[in-house]
Design a protein around this nucleic acid. Structure first.
Lengths: 224, 224, 224, 224
DNA sequence: TATGAATGAGATTTCATTCAT
DNA sequence: TATGAATGAAATCTCATTCAT
């Protein structure tokens, strides 16, 4: 077989072309799902030939994986400063409330995730990005705690994970009913989630009153 | 030719045959996803011919819809008594922690849900069942409140919806990493969720006044 | 093989049932064509099971053949008296002008004819009926000539055949454009055809003036 | 496995390939009819894969339509000069007398026409070509009248239409009985048709005055 | 690099027919 | 007689991928 991985050098022009392509992939997949998005459809929409796609990306699977990668890179790193850690965390979390154009990303993400349940390579890939996201959110939580925006007893990793679970749940909810009304409801639920977090999430593990006091203190400390 | 009349065994009757088929569908779809589950594969696994499937169910879409219906009917109505409302609610919620064999149902559910984002009929179908589930959980919450198992200020519908969102999020999390360790972590998160719920989720909607002492105490402590 | 032609006796009740069935066949085929008319569709429309059809008629081909037979028998033998031969001939010929419900018969006939071009048995069958029709029309022409309704020089067989050709052409024309306007035009063409026939078709073979006179005589004879 | 790369020969180019394919379609359909001509059969006969056909033509319907188009373009425009208008008209009309290889075209045409009775798009297509043909014949009739080859009272459009009807009828007749003997008979009928046309069809539309004595005489005789 | 015609496997679906009841 | 579930072959069409240009 001539499957001897001809490593292609990155050359100028090539990158722009590829980025365009990946954007198309991500659009088409978000609309039709991975299985139903055909290479021809993608090629047509991207205004290249099918041959070109298979030339650049070995096959469909690789193409989709690279598209996820690119999508993540487009979406995630809007990590600017000029905002407090909590504001930034909220910014990311509310990104899960679907609205043009970010819903495309999440639709793609959902398709990819579910598809991953029957393709180990894709799943690993997805987990990799999930972990990155998780640790980033955890860091933000810790910073927010340090700056007194969140109660001090909150564990970064744990709080981040729970928040991620909740936001993923919201996404499922919105995919189930993608109308405006439901989006508003979901936004409210997320606001409540944060309200509870900021006010007092001390109940979570330490049901003893001792810890509770700490929580109260922290609130007062904030009020002071 | 080997056309030596393969004598068909006495047929198991229409209903039995259909139930068998739907079980197979649900297995295959949970493993491969809706698009990747081919009619032939389903037929082979169910040991019928492809013609038989299309004879009973008009087409793939209808088949999958009926499979969901059947799966729901198998899974949901384990609404026994002999348990308190909260126990029963927990029972349902912890059903979202994947473990053989119920994980199959949820994998199927996830595939169906995501698929529904590009098939209005399926989506409607899914929403229908979601609403049923939601109102059932809401009822359980209200009963639990009435019996003092949950804080009095909790709104049935709202609490149920938030819980559903969280459990759906847990499901996504488990599909992303379907190993034992993660399942344990998810179970813990759900336990914490309930702990918080039982103890005091009073921040969310603090509009109620003075019914449950414990809750109120904690509030007062906060106010102090 | 158990293909030992179980000759089924004709029993009361059976005939009515069969007639009903054949009518349905003929309706369905006229709408969809022979290939596209499925046994299931016919069965459903006739409100019997597919098994019943295959029980009565060995297979689809036989079924369609019997349907033509039945259709011919329904359509053709409206050979009453109380009309002059020419009137009756016209009656048959104008039957080729499509209008509910006789158009169904001709649509069926056309499908059958074209289908016959790749099925010798059906073709033979069709030819058989065509010949019957032809000789009947020829007889009517001869009678019309005898009674002075048509010019004396007309040959029965030949005139009938030409008329049949023309009417078949009209049918094709009407299938091509099945609107009212075209039907009217076709009717006019047929009227003209008859006008020419009655007036003087003497030109056809004998271009000499001699025969022409005869023609004139016959007309006068009628007027006298 | 015998997957030993069957080297494809250098491809004959898009247009050549398509023309080849359409010729095959037209052959196969003329033999088996539209419904019975399977894509696979066509593919096999054309020595391409089924994929190739569906790549070039979207689907069977489009394929058949293009085949008719191509067939028309191959058959019709043999409009040379060096012949008088009447000769050319006769040339076209006698084209309806089936004989290799033009019978293929007419078989195809008949199948297409009948099929059109249940497919509006095909029917429209067929009507379009019919109209073209009709206006061309009408023009020839007018030219023939002008040159004195045909009686002056003949209306171009009407005469052409009647002639077309007759020839279509002859085609049906020949499909019904496709043997030599019948072909000869049909040819004779067409000759007679022309003979009558050339001599005097003055009865049809007696609105003209006095040009052709014979015709007028016969009319007067009738009036007397 | 890029193209797009060509491929052939495989997907869904339909169909005439069989046969246990 | 009559039924209708079951069959498996075959039909149409789609798809990822290859490869000569």
């Amino acid at each position: 077989m001539t499957k001897t991985a001809k490593k292609r050098q990155t050359r100028p022009g090539r990158i722009a072309r590829q980025a365009e392509l990946l954007t198309t992939v991500y659009k088409v997949v978000s609309e039709f799902g991975i299985d139903a998005a055909s290479m021809r459809q993608i090629a047509t929409r991207a205004k290249v030939s099918t041959g070109t796609i298979n030339y650049h990306f070995r096959n469909k699977e690789k193409l989709v994986m690279e598209a996820l990668q690119a999508a993540y890179q487009m979406t995630l790193p809007e990590a600017d400063s000029a905002h407090t850690p909590l504001e930034r965390l909220k910014g990311f979390a509310f990104g899960y409330i679907l609205h043009e154009p970010n819903d495309r990303f999440w639709r793609f993400w959902m398709n990819y995730t579910v598809y991953g349940s029957r393709n180990e390579e894709l799943r690993k890939h997805q987990v990799h990005w999930f972990k990155k996201q998780h640790s980033f959110w955890a860091k933000l939580v810790r910073e927010a705690v340090k700056e007194g925006e969140l109660p001090p007893h909150l564990d970064g990793a744990e709080t981040a994970e729970q928040l991620l679970v909740f936001t993923h749940g919201l996404m499922v909810r919105q995919i189930l009913e993608p109308d405006k009304k439901n989006q508003t409801r979901c936004r409210k639920m997320l606001e409540q989630y944060f309200a509870r977090l900021e006010a007092d999430a001390g109940v979570c593990k330490p049901t003893v009153n001792g810890t509770r006091e700490v929580s109260m203190l922290s609130r007062r400390g904030k009020a002071a």
